[in-house]
Amino acid sequence: MRPLDGLVILDLSRVLACPFATMLLAEMGAEVIKVEQPGSGDETRGFEPFAEGPGGSVSGYYMACNRAKRSVTVNLRHEEGRRIIRDLAAQADVLVENFPTGALKRRGLDWASLAAVNPRLVYISCTGFGQSGPYAKRKGYDTVFQAMGGLMSLTGERGGGPVKPGLPVADLSSGLWVAIAILSALRGRDRTGKGGHVDVSMFDAQVALLTIAAARHFALGEVPPRLGTEHPGRVPSASFRCADGRYLHITASDQHWAPLCAALSLDALAADPGLATNAGRVARREDVMRAMGAALAELPRGEAFARLDAAGVPAGPVLELDEVLADEHVRARGMVASFEHPQLGRFPALPVPLRFEGWGDPEVGRPPLLGEHTEAVLRERLGLDAARIAELREMGAL
């Protein structure tokens, strides 16, 4: 038995943040019914990159965040389609939506309307800027929230302009907040017997991640500058170019300083009492970084890493994506899995990174074909027969 077996989530969300959240919960056992637009589905079904297989091409983007779900097509612009959503919500534990603020209220599918038919429903609204405030009606994407939430201003090389991270951090982290919101609200429902509404703002979610940067501002009045791979409050903590042109990242605390100096033959630094503490090294950041950079530039990455690892100094090679996926520890931990797809055959996937004792582990499922489960869900959940389902299709509700 997986931890979330028996939980039913009605997923009206699209694109990335919320679909990522519901996929995580689906692979931990929840039944996720993904509602998609007839004909086109979630817009990410049309996003590159596309994987090619014997049965055609499939969006890798869609597959990355929609595994293990059941897909039903419902036209929310049609009254009968909206009736189906209300009927499904009456049986669900959770509803997740990321429509623009106010859009579902105009269709009678907002929290207040659905709570009237299911008082135990946990209703999650995830929007760019939340349900209130001066920006509530604004639209935005991942990079907009990175920019406005401060992440971009912190990222980049010394003296350079702002840089976005290589992954959609705002979308992915917002998805984790959504998953936390769902599980927290369900625990609250367990105690009170009543559901509730959770307002998740992707902008708020990014501001909340500022943590240490904000702490520096609160404590020191500092607006942290861009430092590349360096840490603003710890030295050494940075990536260094080695003799073979590859990079090694090192992050050391006071207890690692003497072993680090010995491993890299930095005798002058080791003998300097002013560098024995992190505060001293931060004050003389340029001296330390220059000496370490020169030493590591003389060593191939493999040799430098081996020396530091043997000395117990926290370090790791800066790996390219293909190197990560082929890494022996990644493979040993099962972090590259796969599913069987009807159009592609066997296809790789990154599983939920949790291992349970006392419950079954998460299971990698395959992403659904568009509308693959429409008839089954309407038959099982709502008791509709084939004739009624055909009628609903004919009138454009499905």
Rank of each mutant, 00 (worst) to 15 (best):
L4R: 05
L7M: 13
V8P: 05
A17W: 11
C18V: 14
M23P: 05
L24K: 09
A26H: 09
V32G: 03
G53V: 00
G53L: 06
V58R: 02
Y62S: 08
C65W: 15
N66I: 15
R67M: 04
V74Y: 10
L88V: 04
A89G: 02
L95F: 10
F99C: 08
A103S: 14
R107Y: 03
R107C: 01
L109I: 02
N118Y: 13
P119R: 03
R120S: 04
V122H: 08
I124G: 00
I124N: 07
C126W: 10
Q131C: 10
A136L: 00
K137R: 14
R138N: 13
T143Q: 15
A147P: 00
M148F: 15
R158L: 10
R158A: 13
G159E: 07
P165L: 10
V169Q: 09
A170M: 01
A170T: 03
L172Q: 10
L176N: 01
W177P: 01
L183H: 04
S184T: 12
L186R: 01
G188Q: 06
K194V: 14
G195T: 15
V198E: 00
S201I: 15
M202L: 06
D204T: 05
D204L: 07
I212V: 10
E222I: 09
R226W: 11
H231T: 15
P232F: 07
R241Q: 14
R241S: 14
R246Y: 00
I250E: 05
H256V: 08
C261D: 12
C261Q: 06
C261L: 06
L264A: 00
D267T: 08
A276V: 10
N278S: 10
G280C: 11
R285M: 10
R285W: 10
R285I: 15
E286F: 11
A297R: 00
A306T: 03
A311H: 05
V313Y: 01
V318C: 12
V318S: 08
D322P: 04
V330K: 05
R331W: 11
V336F: 04
S338T: 05
F339Y: 13
Q343C: 02
L344M: 09
G345W: 02
P348D: 13
P353C: 11
P353Q: 11
L354M: 13
R355T: 14
F356A: 00
D361M: 08
E363W: 07
G365N: 01
L369Y: 06
L370T: 11
L370Y: 07
A376Q: 11
E380R: 08
R381F: 06
R381H: 08
L382F: 07
R388Y: 05
R388H: 05
L392K: 09
R393F: 06
